[in-house]
Design a protein around this nucleic acid. Structure first.
Length: 483
DNA sequence: TGGGGTTAT
DNA sequence: ATAACCC
């Protein structure tokens, strides 16, 4: 098969316009421009080369579990399956199953309103996230088996970069097999697939992998969810929600403008949050087209160059951000909102409760946190609920006791946390807190110091002085020994 | 609004 | 340490 002589993507391999065109969905070329003159009509697909580095044409899937907490509860107790079910945290129904949604219950609805709308609603307390977190990581691990590049977004969403996998599958396919490829699930806009277009073919293969992922989630974990397949994270995420529960959708490049313009407000663009949306509205920008066409210079002046350039790209459906493997968590935290905490004793009791749960989690993880943080929210009639925090390094002698359930690590940790507390809250004055939270962060892997290295002799758990049971000399971790 | 998470400044 | 973003 001869290389394509005509104009097309593959001739503009490393030119910026080719990348932009692919993202903008106008890369389809003129009708019949490619491959039609080939004897078999289709073999030329193998010659449509994706530029080396493959940064210009990616295949990304966004996987989004259906009403995740409610699903976990229904798996725990199958009797709940055909009943309207809500998961409650404090006085909020944070999520609910589709039975409940049919009856008018919405996410983040007040318990009172929900009960009023739907008196038969069954409510389960979901303030303890342990089982949700565990199931969440099972999903991520399952997806990592397909490709290691998995990025978590919250507990119930994952992005996977399928570019490499799709490339490998395509290499295995014969031309006649490519000609027989079919999409799995929906195609956004019902757009016709063109099997002579490499981008279409790659996305179709992506849709098949997405279907395999959803099937594996259901078989192995009993979970259903949606998937969206597109050329970047933004579009994959937007398209995953088009057909809702337990369905999947692929976006072909020619329809990306339709998808982005289907949004009724800029706040619906992931990456444009509450604050930015308000500032944009103040500039008279309310819909996607307003943002697309707004003066870049003025936008940069108003929001800073970083945010301005990023969100304006997003408004065009462009998103070059990579799928960043999440790996193990960067922090562990436990929080509890309260009606009122106004004494040091109450605070200490809450902190001890939060800490006890955290220590279990940290112990299971195996890594050691080197920093601890205390977060509070003060009662203040209105004003957005802003939080304050104080953090400090964890003294090394406390860190070492963390894995061993043997020694009392509660006492020194509570002491530290109460010092942080008094640093934030003047306990001699009246106070009213509505939230307490403890966070362990700055997690470091266990010392893998090898014999003969500097680290070995400076690591108390490995050096001979430490095995004697006494405190060894330390040249590392000299800070905060006595707080 | 809950009980989590992340990155940038 | 805070502020923004995400779920």
């Amino acid at each position: 098969v001869e290389p394509e002589p005509e104009g097309g993507r593959d001739e503009e391999e490393d030119a910026a316009p080719a990348m932009e065109r692919a993202e903008e969905g106008v890369a389809g070329g003129s009708p019949g421009a490619r491959g039609l003159e080939e004897p078999g009509g289709l073999p030329c697909i193998h010659d449509q080369v994706v530029p080396a580095g493959s940064s210009s044409s990616r295949v990304i899937v966004h996987v989004d579990l259906d009403c995740f907490y409610a699903q976990v509860e229904m798996i725990s107790n199958p009797e709940l399956k055909d009943k309207p079910l809500g998961v409650q945290q404090k006085y909020l129904v944070v999520t609910c199953n589709y039975e409940a949604r049919k009856l008018g219950v919405k996410k983040l609805m007040n318990v009172r309103d929900a009960k009023e709308k739907c008196p038969q609603l069954v409510l389960i307390n979901g303030e303890d996230l342990t089982r949700y977190r565990e199931m969440s990581y099972k999903v991520t691990e399952l997806l990592e088996e397909f490709s290691p590049v998995v990025e978590r977004l919250g507990f119930d969403e994952n992005f996977v970069d399928l570019t490499e996998m799709v490339g490998k599958r395509l290499q295995q396919l014969q031309s006649d097999e490519i000609a027989a490829l079919t999409v799995s699930g929906h195609v956004y806009n019902n757009q016709a697939v063109n099997l002579r277009d490499l981008l279409h073919v790659r996305l179709l293969v992506g849709s098949q992998i997405a279907a395999e992922m959803r099937e594996a989630m259901y078989i192995q974990l009993g979970l259903t969810g949606c998937a969206g397949v597109a050329s970047n994270k933004l579009l994959a995420k937007l398209v995953s929600g088009v057909f809702k529960p337990n369905q999947q959708t692929v976006l072909l490049p020619e329809s990306s403008q339709d998808l982005i313009h289907s949004l009724n407000h800029i706040k619906e663009i992931p990456g444009i949050g509450y604050k930015t949306a308000k500032r944009l509205e103040a500039l008279g920008i309310s819909n996607v087209r307003d943002l697309q066409t707004f003066s870049s210079k003025i936008l940069e002046k108003e929001l800073g160059i970083s945010v301005a350039q990023r969100i304006q790209k997003l408004s065009l459906g462009e998103d070059h951000s990579p799928v960043t493997p999440s790996g193990p968590p960067q922090s562990f935290s436990e929080e509890d909102s309260l009606k009122k905490c106004s004494s040091e004793i109450e605070a200490k009791n809450k902190i001890e409760e939060l800490l006890a749960s955290l220590l279990n989690r940290v112990c299971q993880d195996g890594r050691k946190p080197h920093t601890v943080r205390l977060i509070i929210r003060r009662y203040s009639s209105e004003k957005h609920c802003s939080r304050e925090s104080r953090q400090c390094p964890i003294p090394s002698h406390v860190i070492q006791k963390l894995g061993t359930g043997n020694y009392d690590v509660m006492t020194p940790m509570v002491d530290i946390l109460m010092k942080l507390f008094r640093n934030m809250v003047n306990v001699k004055m009246p106070f009213h807190l509505t939230l307490l939270s403890v966070c362990f962060c700055n997690l470091k892997a266990l010392n893998t110091a090898k014999k003969g290295t500097i680290d070995y002799y400076l690591t108390p758990s490995l050096s001979t002085t430490s095995r004697s049971g006494k405190r060894s000399f330390k040249m590392k971790d000299t800070h905060m020994e006595d707080f």
